[in-house]
Design a binder for these strands. Structure first.
Lengths: 348, 348
DNA sequence: AACGTTCCCGACAACGATTGCATAAAGATA
DNA sequence: TATCTTTATGCAATCGTTGTCGGGAACGTT
């Protein structure tokens, strides 16, 4: 025996069956009436609609998912939401997804390959319609991505992509951003420009390094490997590497490649009592909201995180909705970066 | 006719029915075998288990949700994930939820009451087992929360709570944090201490104001209303209010109440060329990771975001799993705050 | 009068998994 | 031999919804 307390908000949510019973109709008729099917009498439709409205009927998305084998939800896997780039990208994703009637389910890999794989399994079991992924710093192989592809589940890589797999990709123009930053340092008179980079596995690392090298080459500065350091995500590790670098290589400028690195590096430099920008120019590849409040204010190359998220989501949803046609070309979309010069890199 | 490509990963996911067909058993037997029911022959069990393992069977959570009318997922609604306090709190929530076998689905209200309500509706339709909510800055009434309560859906408010409703609540010790911050300013010799507060609707705002007042009172400093400003979340608004305050009230210290306010306020002070801490002491109620990198480094009252998230999640899951017993006492848990003194509030 | 249309609507199966009940086969007891 | 237990399994209902099929009623056509 079921209980209904509809006057005070339903204890049990009302289903199509409940409506059918009350109106003495079959569930099929109610269903069709609600979807405005042509084969239902106008009067019946009105009755059903009105009653549904009155009892605040809303279809059970779980039942629909089961029936249709899709969920109108997309999964997002990012290394860390406590990172402005990713939280802004997620905002971009949600913006697009919500407009197109999809939900967004967020997962974090916390820079762990293992968690990335587990997340993907979970997310697939949950029957999302598609996936947006930014790879963890530990991710080296792409077998988990290949599995997704074999399951014909649409996905788009963004920001942290891999060149070991063919897929839709949305990235910032890392090469150009790094090139501009390096060129800026060179033009302001620096020559010994160090580059603090993310783990070498990441695509962003390679592209930014390439931009850095290209700028050096353009101005005929020899590439010096000892000025480039790859760092993981531990603060201590970064500080040690940077400490060594400062002591042994005496760079006159540093170009870092991410929020985390910029901050840890920045604080190590200050702890060593080295003056920015007088003794050392500094520019970061970051999305920090507080860049202008640091002392000195931090020059940065900014990635349009929100736009990257939007673009990736658009691409994914197009792919999902076009899925049946099947034959589709993988696309890589590159979004321009912007350089903001502040005090940390201007010393004259 | 279904296609199976199990050697290369299944195109169609395998169901209990598929297993049954292959092994010439009924779905019931397979189901029971997988759950290790005592009424299934040991040999049959082994067969089923092995085959299930081989084809990588995993039960369809959607089907289970439909049947059991629960999802082993909890919903989280926060104003903004691009806010360290909330992203850290979410990490705490996920930590606990994952350990206890639940998924976390994140929604943002973007400080909008309307979006908060819509999010709640969505989330309820999705059949989550419970809800964690931190209210938006615009939220004034709690009818949406009352609705949840009438639907008997367990929920816990955290950080941004409301005193208009009885429910489980987890908060930082805002009173004490504000008291300590204000007292610190007083003890260092300040007397005209301004307080930049969040929207006055929020519980945190009221509690922190009370702590501020209590500290003033303890040291027999008269409470001056004109030193207190309530701000929304727009940068321009904050800067204008602070600008006016600085000009007209000439405070010798400022105590702000959130990340956003601290940053906007900080930058306005610097733009006006006022020296921190010489002319003006500054302390914020924030969770900024970069507080120590600002110039001068920023004194703060820190809320244990991760722990708040953990506690709230524990409370919710307990509530969910105890749900059937029904009669439960609402609890309010207060987590201590910590004061970190840096240069922005030390001038001698 | 016999047949064909059109209009509305209901019965049933299906999606994937669980579970109460029924039951066949085999063994145990009287 | 007849009846009762036990063991192992299958059937069918269920969750909420939709799609396929089929059919009754009312009307028009020959």
């Amino acid at each position: 025996m079921k209980l209904y307390f509809n006057k005070i908000g339903s204890l049990e949510t009302v289903t199509i069956k409940d409506i059918a019973k009350v109106l003495n109709l079959s569930t099929s008729t109610v269903s069709r009436a609600l979807r405005g099917s042509y084969e239902i009498n106008a009067e019946t439709k009105r009755l059903v609609m009105e009653y549904a409205e009155k009892v605040n009927y809303s279809p059970n998305p779980i039942a629909l998912s089961l029936k249709e084998n899709k969920s109108r939800a997309i999964g997002v896997i990012v290394p860390e939401i406590a990172n402005h780039f990713f939280s802004q990208a997620i905002n971009g994703i949600e913006d697009v997804a919500n407009k197109r009637g999809y939900h967004v389910v967020i997962f974090q890999s916390h820079e762990s390959y293992q968690r990335e794989v587990i997340n993907i399994q979970h997310i697939i079991a949950r029957k999302v319609d598609g996936l947006l992924i930014s790879l963890s710093g530990q991710t080296n192989d792409v077998i988990h991505l290949q599995e997704i592809q074999q399951k014909k589940l649409p996905f788009v890589l963004f920001d942290r992509v891999s060149d070991k797999i063919e897929a839709h990709k949305v990235v910032a123009d890392n090469f150009d951003g790094a090139f501009k930053a390096t060129e800026h340092l060179i033009l302001s008179g620096r020559r010994r420009i160090a580059h603090i980079a993310s783990p070498s596995l990441l695509s962003i690392t390679k592209e930014r390094l390439a931009g850095y090298k290209a700028a050096l080459e353009k101005y005929s500065i020899l590439y010096d490997e000892s000025l480039v350091k790859y760092c993981g995500f531990g603060a201590e590790e970064v500080k040690k590497l940077v400490g060594d670098l400062l002591e042994n290589q005496k760079p006159d400028a540093i170009f870092t490649t991410s929020d985390r690195l910029a901050l840890d590096c920045f604080s190590e430099i200050k702890e060593q009592g080295i003056l920015i920008p007088e003794q050392l120019s500094f520019i970061g590849f970051t999305n920090l909201k507080v860049a202008h409040l640091l002392a000195p204010s931090l020059s940065t190359v900014v990635q349009p995180a929100f736009e990257i998220g939007q673009t990736a989501a658009e691409l994914l949803l197009d792919s999902i909705e076009r899925k049946s046609q099947n034959i589709e070309q993988f696309r890589t979309i590159k979004i321009p970066t912007e350089m903001v010069v502040r005090k940390s890199s201007v010393f004259n």
